[in-house]
Design a protein around this nucleic acid. Structure first.
Lengths: 216, 216
DNA sequence: CAGGTTCCTGATCATTCGATCAGACTCAGT
DNA sequence: ACTGAGTCTGATCGAATGATCAGGAACCTG
């Protein structure tokens, strides 16, 4: 009665790495949008155009897939920011900071998944938060805090404790992009549009350091 | 073989409203921490100290319970802010704004559930986001935008488009409290401590309006 | 006291989830 | 041509979830 479906012809041998990558990309999107519990391995597999058991072939568990997805987005963040910082040796501190913050805003716009995942996992203590904070967030925090300390010491920022500056910056920069769909509906602005992203970078920088625009 | 457990004695007749309220409070906490999918009706019931079917007795579905929880937190927000605003008739615009923003920071600290839920639901289009934005967020946005417009027009804020100011404010104010557990571990600061909350309000206000402290 | 309503519980349903497993297909090495 | 490792799929498992249902206890009304 039950007729076996004919196996699909496969032109060439698949590349495991490419498939793994597709799964990680799909997982990052879905984890960040639907949360760890809300994203199902079936939906991740469907978006990656593979079958669900293949997810468990490449990753021993859903949690390990989540680790891989988070590793990926933080690697991209570090590429973007340390790459930018290295091109700025010798430039004065305030200019460097403004350019790095601008780059950070651009990154938040291009990769809202980063802060979506952080706000999902860092609300409650748990094994995933432990790993995320100690493995990825702390290094970012310490670098950022050092930069902010320098700016306060040089008088470029008001004398506000570093931790507050950090959470103000990491709240002000990404929120518009994290809540992209809400922003579109609420304000009519599309936070994916380049001119909106640039305006947001301008806004963050001018509120932190005093009014000043891209064109001096 | 199976022995029926003796029914628990119940001293007085329970109040349906009080039970409903306990369920809503538990649901708000768990929805905000674990997301809609991550929070189970059994866990909500356990925290409210009731049985799981009782949740479905008072609320026809999990989603309706979520609506009730969101209604509750927005009612608290409106109580806090409009109550504060009414005591400030006749006070000058800048002072009013500073006091309202301070009150907003206090509210974010006392009720991190608000922005936890917004960031969970407003990342993706869907029926819950539709309802949340049109029913609750839009009125808040329009009131806030009007205030911010006034501040820009009066020269108290840099000439930045309103939508950006809104997302900078609603990002900068609550993030430290939304990510409370992370903040404790990362910085050693406890964002539940009154002096930390006040320092954050000072920080947000001084970055928006220029350095100035509680004690002039 | 009789009948009805409100509030609540234990048992259980169908569904969906993450995970596992046997087997199939491709290809490199020999 | 044969073998074995690597990659992938359909079928299916146990566990957990949201929801339902029959029934029971407390209370009100007459």
């Amino acid at each position: 009665m039950a007729q076996a479906a004919p196996p699909k012809a496969r032109a060439t041998r698949p590349s495991a790495n490419a498939t793994r990558e597709r799964i990680v990309v799909a997982a990052l999107d879905l984890f960040s949008e639907l949360s760890f519990d809300g994203a199902t391995t079936r939906e991740i597999a469907a978006r990656a155009e593979v079958t669900q058991p293949l997810v468990n072939y490449h990753f021993s568990s859903k949690e390990e897939l989540w680790f891989a997805a988070v590793d990926r987005i933080f690697a991209q963040l570090n590429d973007a920011l340390t790459g930018r910082a290295e091109g700025l040796r010798g430039v004065d501190e305030l200019t460097t900071a403004k350019l790095l913050i601008r780059e950070f805003v651009y990154f938040c716009a291009a990769h809202p998944q980063l802060h979506r995942i952080i706000t999902q996992e860092c609300k409650t203590d748990g094994p995933r938060m432990d790993w995320l904070v100690e493995h990825h967030v702390r290094p970012v925090y310490e670098q950022t805090a050092a930069m902010l300390d320098g700016l306060v010491a040089a008088g470029h920022l008001p004398r506000v404790p570093t931790a507050h500056l950090y959470y103000i910056l990491t709240g002000a920069a990404p929120t518009m992009f994290v809540l992209g769909p809400e922003c579109r509906r609420l304000t009519g602005l599309d936070p994916r549009a380049p001119e909106v992203i640039e305006a947001h970078a301008d806004a963050v920088i001018s509120l932190l350091f005093g009014a000043e625009r891209t064109e001096p």
